[in-house]
Computed example of a mutant assay.
Amino acid sequence: MERLRIAVAGSSGLIGSALVRSLTADGHEVVRLVRRAAEGPGEVCWDPAGRSIETTAAGLTGCAAVVNLAGAGIGDRRWTPSYKRLLRDSRVLGTAALAEAVAMLPEPPRVFVSGSAIGIYGDTGDRVVDEQAPPGDGFLPSLCVEWEEAAAPAQEAGVRTVFARTGLVVARGGGAWGRLFPLFRAGLGGRLGDGRQYWSYISLHDEVAALRFLIDGDTLSGPFNLTAPEPLTNREITAAMGRVLHRPAPFAVPAPVLRAVLGEMAGDVLGSQRVVPKRLLESGFRFAFPGIEEAIRAA
């Protein structure tokens, strides 16, 4: 297996840290892009605001791949105007900075994998959507559109550019499931709203495997949905959580309560997204944990 030099932005996050562990275990040289001063040869300081493109480009020299997973957590705080601005800037400005740095290199990387999200489709109800679906309406879809457009400098420089549109990652250490697991273990789990909304999930193992598949796939470019093949309703998922953890799931959080507690973000929790990974499957990717119970047990 060829040993590659791969740069990862967002390497301390849930997905980024798992990707770094996987790449390092297979002998690849990983360069972690950090916002503080670099503390060793495996780190490069970069400015996501784009004020030091030349410095970032120097740190990317010799990289065969650049993976951008940086961005403030969507569910970390209530969506105040200031936090919405942070959500946007941390993704759009950071992606633009990396794309410009990549385009500046005399020998650019083979591939630029840029993070994105299935939030780009908006609320799709019961309709099954793949990568050909247009963007939806609202804050998250417009954010995702800007996020992906920010990668234009890399594309225009001829670098193979991939948009990893990630769904809800089933993992113990963070994201939506990082909050759900403790509730269910305490016997407080249950559906959200009426539970009929579709959730498009993916195990953390398959998320990392898919990212590596996209890095290695020399002919793969454009958007790819990183979700399990068969989305399920929130009601079905919470029932599976109860079965796997041997806890009943009798409770339900009414929609008005979610809206009162979460504000605008409640629309994302109560919205329905029935997203399928059409292009990933057509390209030959195979899921290790396609079913929800398998994914929960793996976590």
Rank of each mutant, 00 (worst) to 15 (best):
M1K: 13
E2H: 14
R3I: 13
S17R: 12
G27M: 00
R32F: 04
R36W: 06
A37V: 09
A38G: 03
E39L: 11
P41E: 02
E43P: 00
P48D: 03
S52Y: 06
S52F: 08
T55A: 15
A57G: 02
A58T: 12
G59Y: 08
L60T: 11
T61S: 14
A64Y: 07
L69E: 00
D76K: 15
S82N: 05
S82E: 14
S90R: 10
R91G: 02
L93D: 14
T95I: 01
A96W: 08
L98G: 07
V102M: 01
L105C: 00
P108K: 01
G115M: 01
S116P: 04
I118N: 03
Y121L: 02
D126H: 09
V129S: 06
E131I: 08
A133N: 05
P135N: 07
F139G: 12
P141A: 10
P141M: 09
S142E: 15
S142W: 06
L143T: 15
L143S: 14
C144W: 10
E146M: 05
A157C: 02
T161G: 06
V162W: 14
A164V: 09
R172N: 02
G173T: 14
G175M: 00
G175S: 00
R179V: 09
R179T: 13
R179Q: 13
R179K: 15
P182Y: 08
L183Y: 05
A186R: 15
G189H: 05
G190Y: 04
G190V: 07
W199K: 00
S200H: 02
H205S: 08
V208E: 04
R212L: 00
G217T: 10
D218L: 09
D218Y: 05
T227R: 00
A228P: 04
E230W: 08
E230K: 11
P231R: 03
P231Y: 05
T233I: 02
E236L: 12
I237C: 11
T238C: 01
A239Y: 00
R243Q: 12
V244W: 10
V244A: 12
L245A: 06
R247T: 13
A249M: 05
P254M: 07
A255L: 09
V261Q: 08
G271W: 09
S272W: 01
S272L: 00
L280H: 08
S283L: 13
G284N: 04
R286Y: 06
R286I: 12
F287C: 10
R297K: 14
R297Q: 12
